[in-house]
Design a binder for these strands. Structure first.
Lengths: 256, 256
DNA sequence: GCAAGAATCTCATAATGCGGGAATCTTGCA
DNA sequence: TGCAAGATTCCCGCATTATGAGATTCTTGC
């Protein structure tokens, strides 16, 4: 194990299913001696990424909240979410959730969300939760606008749907690229409809999507028209907002 | 530089004031060669803690959102906030903000917050933001319930108020320990009143506080009575909630 | 197609992490 | 209070890894 891996391996053990680990468990899982594990854990505790709790076990530490707050203030996409999502779901005027999601390794991650108070449907997408990249409107809108190379690599690596399924998926992605809209029915959550518009910012290296999830029975023609229109315009607004945020940043650092 | 420090030093460069760094800037700041810096940054990017953006610079990466989401689901104190704070501010029925804060190194950090819709006063406390430990009701409630050793160490290390000021502070902390309530006037934000109740869970190693901030002019006698009573009861409720969460955890891991 | 900068690679050297086991510190319990 | 049983840190020789300087390759804008 080398470099940062040694720390990453430890941190990745902490999951929703098992959120506290003892040194003995970590050692067992990673095959290291307790001497080494203690040293590694101690360093992570010092940095605030872990903290000790009862029964000589450890949990994730407060530094993550600190960095998350920092991203909330500085990350262009996260900030866009805070600015646009609330208004978007209000204007949609139908029970729904809205998400800003982005590529994260070989997954898709939601970085901001908003929902109408009356949205009862539980959605799998949630801020900070990695989701599969090949299923759902949110993911497909992102996948569609990736550069050809990484797109094909991801599809071929992750698709387990046979060659005809892959061809079909590529065709769908092409059509999303054209219409700049992705619509899926119950691919992630049954009874839910997902509609997404891609968001790109090549210089910032951002591939993302703006999406709305609502109940199938609410998806009437007028709602559909409203969703399509608001998604398209808001996606553009967010692209512009990120450009502006970037210029602002450059202006400030240039002046400093 | 040794161990995790090398990564921590890089990550700590990213602040609200300067949220993107080039390799050259990092090298300059840390006194390392670009060769070394590139390697370090590459590892952090691979782990999702950094990501590259325009102009060969880097910003904080999405892994922080992932870990934050994990804490939101698993951390006993954070979860307590989600359960109790909304109801608390509703019942207070006066424009206010409410916080759950905890010790974080030599600072205090808010880990959950809620505010009434009509709360106009801007408060310095914000989720994920480290705050000084010697000023404000929120901080003093935590400081008061620390074990004697660390409490005295922190006060003597951080207080720049002369020996009589220190004595005064210790007296105030003692009285907070007795009454289990801390009240301060404009110590952090002018025009604001802070009221806090300590929250302890020795086995979990948690030293925290539940606090409310409101405008000085709203702090009438009936409001005061309501705040005191609700803070005390909710602080106890949260202590119990964390005990229960812990038992639940042990039960589950015992059953697994 | 070219140049300027960004990013990676190579390699000898210096520094650091590693495991095993001893030593020390906590903590629960009698 | 004293005494185990863990939990945690310390120590040290050895193996591994990081480091810096510079060459090399890759990008990107013009």
């Amino acid at each position: 194990m080398s470099g940062f891996d040694r720390y990453d391996k430890v941190l990745r053990l902490f999951t929703a299913q098992k959120s506290t680990w003892t040194v003995a468990e970590i050692s067992g899982e990673l095959g290291t001696t307790s001497s080494t594990t203690y040293r590694t854990v101690r360093e992570l505790v010092a940095a605030g990424l872990l903290e000790s709790t009862v029964a000589s076990s450890f949990r994730l530490g407060p530094a993550f909240l600190e960095y998350e707050q920092l991203m909330r203030v500085t990350d262009p996409l996260v900030r866009s979410g805070a600015v646009f999502l609330e208004t978007l779901v209000e204007q949609l005027d139908v029970p729904c959730s809205s998400f800003l999601a982005r590529l994260y390794g070989e997954k898709v991650m939601c970085v901001a969300e908003a929902r109408t108070p009356n949205m009862t449907l539980q959605t799998s997408y949630r801020r900070g939760r990695p989701m599969p990249i090949l299923r759902g409107a949110t993911s497909k809108a992102i996948l569609a606008t990736l550069a050809t190379r990484p797109r094909e690599r991801l599809v071929h690596k992750l698709a387990d749907i046979g060659p005809e399924g892959v061809a079909e998926l590529f065709a769908e992605l092409q059509s999303i690229r054209k219409s700049r809209l992705s619509v899926t029915f119950g691919e992630v959550d049954t009874g839910a409809i997902g509609i997404a518009a891609p968001i790109e910012n090549k210089p910032l290296g951002i591939n993302a999507s703006l999406s709305v999830v609502l109940r199938a029975e609410d998806f009437s023609e007028p709602v559909k028209a409203r969703v399509f229109s608001l998604l398209s315009t808001n996606a553009k607004l967010i692209e512009n907002f990120m450009d502006d945020a970037q210029s602002e940043l450059e202006r400030r650092s240039g002046a400093a």
